[in-house]
């Protein structure tokens, strides 16, 4: 939970971290997630307000993630947000989780603006968007199987590294040779789509081979394969989208230093300004939800009422309609 002023000033941001418990199981445990949500939500609300030095009456609006996600967890947040909005007569904004990742860039960069091409890369998503304006987005490409962050997690597990796999592989890769192990890169005939399933299978074969190379070399080579594809396709999409003035990077994998470094180099070469949030705002956080609510209201996109629903699956944007040359 977070208190954010004017969309850009984070007064407080509380993460009721469950990472230690999840790490014990090597993954997220929804029962823990949802039960903890109920137990902690009032305490977290009080802490967020206290740390921000504000009271209930100082708030101008309430924003909450209502899609997509685990229904049990979404329900706890949306119910609390509705109670706050009703009791305080405040506008309520239901926020799409992926849109909030994009707006994390607006918190720290005063020059963040539309239009842009954005790569959202996390455990659950690998999406390329053309952002035309607030709320006006077109899907350019997405993963056809595994998300990049998922590939990091699964390959870390194959290599015997810790959860979460992103930081573990990044750390192991530091002492490895990124070209030591030949691993496939799925270019998919130059489309803006991604595929990391074959890479995962290839890493499994390397790990399970009779004489596997050092883990550091597998980690570095794997990371390089993922980063190469992400960087090449993002820059290609940005060029193809008609010279957008900037590239945005968002989502948990955007915290990866190698991805930032290579994306920066490629964008520099292409003459494209690149923006990405600081690592704490790349991973899931509440400040980005609050900021999205602010920009949503500022852009005149309206507010929700108490009928605001929770939605398990919903894409942020769809692909552009391609006119049928047959004309039917």
């Amino acid at each position: 939970m977070a208190v954010v002023a004017d969309g850009r000033r984070i007064l407080s941001s509380i993460v009721a971290s469950q990472m230690a418990e999840h790490a014990r199981y090597g993954g997220v445990v929804p029962e823990i997630a949802s039960r903890r949500h109920v137990e902690q939500i009032n305490l977290v609300l009080q802490t967020a307000l206290r740390d921000a030095g504000v009271g209930f009456r100082d708030m101008d609006a309430v924003a909450v993630t209502n899609r997509p996600g685990l229904l049990g967890a979404l329900l706890v947040g949306v119910s609390a947000a509705k109670a706050l909005a009703m009791a305080l007569s405040l506008p309520l904004v239901g926020v799409h989780h992926i849109e909030a990742h994009l707006y994390a860039n607006f918190i720290t960069h005063a020059d963040a603006a539309f239009p842009a091409v954005a790569l959202v890369v996390s455990g659950g998503h690998t999406d390329l968007f053309h952002l035309k304006n607030h709320g006006d987005y077109v899907l350019l490409g997405r993963t056809r199987d595994d998300a990049a962050g998922e590939a990091f997690d699964k390959c870390a597990r194959l290599m015997g590294l810790d959860y979460p796999g992103g930081p573990a592989i990044e750390a192991a890769a530091k002492s490895g040779n990124p070209s030591a192990v030949p691993l496939p890169r799925a270019w998919l005939d130059g489309t803006p789509d991604f595929s990391f399933s074959g890479l995962k299978t290839a890493v499994r074969r390397v790990v399970q081979s009779a004489d596997p190379p050092p883990v550091a070399d597998i980690a570095a080579s794997f990371q390089e394969a993922v980063v190469d594809v992400l960087v090449t396709k993002t820059v290609a999409a940005a060029r193809q989208a008609g010279a957008p003035p900037r590239v945005l990077l968002a989502g948990g994998v955007a915290a990866n230093a190698r991805l930032r470094e290579k994306m920066q180099a490629a964008c520099d070469e292409a003459g494209l300004p690149l923006l990405y949030p600081p690592p704490a705002l790349c991973t899931d956080n509440a400040a980005m939800i609050a900021a999205t609510g602010y920009f949503h209201l500022q852009a005149g996109r309206g507010s929700d009422d108490l009928s605001l629903d929770i939605i398990a699956s919903e894409p942020l944007a769809v692909r552009a309609h391609v006119p049928n040359p047959g004309g039917s």
Binding site: Y25, V28, V29, P30, P68, L70, T143, D146, A312, S313
Partner: peptide, 28 residues
């Protein structure tokens, strides 16, 4: 259709029957 390993469940409601796609790889 993409892997729901992270998101745990994906819903596809636009077909002949609704399809609920679970991945319980990370469940305890």
């Amino acid at each position: 259709v993409t892997s729901p390993t992270f998101t745990l469940v994906h819903e596809y409601r636009d077909g002949r029957l609704p399809l609920f796609h679970f991945d319980v790889y990370r469940l305890s």
